[in-house]
Design a protein around this nucleic acid. Structure first.
Lengths: 343, 343
DNA sequence: GTCAAGCACTCTAGCGAAGAGAGTGCCAGT
DNA sequence: ACTGGCACTCTCTTCGCTAGAGTGCTTGAC
């Protein structure tokens, strides 16, 4: 594409991102960035419209960038301020200190995404079903109940109340704990199930009921296999383009139902450069042509991998949002990798 | 109030709850419940308007019940179908089987409230700061980290990663666990802090760092001292009265900020009959005159007490919503009381 | 060949007028 | 005490009009 065309496309996009309104040739000329008359700008704009980069809502409105136009802008024209990147990294790291438990860390990252971008922040955890049990502990709670705590090697903590075998002292319970750790440490779910089954048959510890309870836990389809955190949905209501309830409704539905979004998340490859942007109809979410999604993979230790990003109006400042998502993903990877490494 | 007036007020409210539109004298007469001519109905309606039970948006619209009108209806006119109560109890109990961990149970109750009413369901837990530690356990996670699990006597499970003291074997860790249990079982937060302080001075176990970590935990302002679960916000978007974005925005703000709602929750006394209804301006939430809140206390074991309910449009079917909230509160109380009692 | 100026054309947003519809209040009659 | 009838009021919708903004095209200058 000719340099002048790129220049003008860039200006149209920038003006559109700022105002959300169609931009006309005169406003662009008066703005003075180009040093051209409205008429000349018009010629170029007409050309860009033929190429599918711009479109006009009607004859006498200005031009609005199409999805392709925004795509070209994001891919080739967008200039990321190098200062900002540094600044952002500091901001992200500053707001998110410490190494808390995994889910708390991820929840905080979600909040941070939302507050930095003013859109809705989202974080997914893909278990991949390969979690290995790192530790299992039985904590006495009352005479009838005990709490089974499992720590996986990806740093996740799960706990569940189960029935306490009759007449077991705390010391005996500790015995059983030790035995279970021998038995199950390093197992994934599948193996754990098998070994529990085998153990039930010999049952040296006479705790058949307890083993059954545990097995039932392992058998249950691991709900929340892809966990999801969301934050800041409210801020989307502030955007003027969502003043029509219909759009916001589709948006909330998509967030609550998760199916559609998961499908999108799968398209983000971890090998790629990092951030992936879906503009308007590119993400194929129904009734959400006015919505864009910016995502990036993060990588924790072992088999923990996830995706995070934001969902917001098509008219978002990609120059700012893309680095935010990028920094957050890197920061989360670093925190997870550094803080929870199990070996 | 005269019987006829009550009768007509009741019909106006019912018609309004169904349609959401102002109701006129003719529609009411044609409906045939009253056996009166439009003119007679008009006379009564004018009287009711003078009493502040009804109001007309403008001269030639029908009448809409005021907050007082709805209040009178809820207090004196509302007939709760006795069958429904039984039916609801079955429905609630049916959808919510088992006795999982406390927070999961409460989350499920929230979902159930939302799905039964089609509004947003909410559940709060008021800790009252009196929680006693029932059990504390240290679970080894890696060579550098361990997981501290605390079970309170209200059945709540908290866990946190802390630094593992250098060169401690799993067996030693168990030793420390036992000692900590001796030290802290039955303590509330205040006592725990004191005892940890004292222990740090003598420190028989040479684990000063660990004790410091724990103390820091106890010192931290217990965040989420009033926990809150929300579900089904999306369904509020379906309500035609929330088609204007402003109302829904205030609503989402109120839910996310929590402050205002907490203030409201405090007004629900546990001794009272059960369900408390706040209609329109009664709850003094800003910009939410079109919103009603229905709440009830539930009572768990020991010092665990909470509030649950729904938030929805002023025009809700109170005859249905009130028993739903009532049943859910009773069911939650039963589940918590029965399943997690510690002694 | 490139750019700018001018002009006719098109489309929308906003405003006021007019008419339909719904509901009321009041009066008179049974 | 209740009802039928009538005049009145207010809103909602539709229609037509105008001002404003922006375009495309043609023509002329460098």
């Amino acid at each position: 594409m000719k340099e002048r065309h790129e220049h003008i496309l860039g200006e149209v996009v920038r003006a559109y991102l700022n105002t959300g309104q169609p931009v006309g040739s005169r406003t662009l000329a008066e703005q003075g960035e180009l040093g051209l008359s409205p008429a000349s700008i018009r010629n170029v704009m007409a050309e860009l419209e033929r190429q599918g980069m711009l479109s006009s809502p009607h004859t006498s409105a200005g031009r609005v960038p199409t999805d392709s136009g925004l795509r070209y802008f994001v891919d080739s024209l967008m200039a990321v301020d190098p200062d900002m990147n540094q600044q952002l990294e500091n901001a992200v790291a500053g707001h998110l200190p410490g190494t808390p438990e995994r889910n708390i860390l991820l929840k905080r990252a979600t909040d941070e995404l939302a507050s930095l971008t003013h859109f809705a922040g989202m974080v997914w955890v893909h278990e991949q079903g390969f979690n290995r049990i790192n530790r299992i502990e039985l904590v006495p709670v009352s005479s009838e109940k005990l709490l089974a705590v499992i720590v996986t090697d990806s740093g996740e903590v799960q706990n569940r109340l189960i029935v306490r075998p009759g007449d077991t002292s705390d010391a005996q319970l500790h015995e059983i704990s030790l035995r279970l750790n021998e038995l199950l440490s390093g197992c994934n779910l599948e193996e754990a199930r098998l070994r529990l089954q085998r153990e039930m048959e010999t049952d040296r510890l006479k705790v058949r009921h307890l083993l059954e309870d545990l097995k039932r836990w392992a058998d249950a389809p691991t709900e929340g296999q892809t966990e999801m955190f969301v934050s800041g949905q409210r801020q989307l209501l502030e955007m003027p383009e969502f003043a029509v309830v219909d759009t916001i409704r589709s948006l909330m539905c998509a967030i609550e139902e998760r199916e559609q979004l998961l499908h999108l998340v799968e398209q983000v490859e971890s090998e790629e450069s990092g951030v992936k942007v879906f503009i308007g109809s590119e993400h194929a979410l129904v009734n959400m042509e006015q919505v864009s999604v910016v995502l990036s993979r993060y990588q924790g230790p072992a088999n923990l991998v996830g995706t995070l990003g934001v969902i917001g109006p098509r008219r978002m400042h990609y120059e700012r949002v893309v680095p935010i998502v990028d920094c957050t993903a890197k920061w989360v990877s670093r925190m997870l990798g550094g803080g929870l490494q199990t070996k």
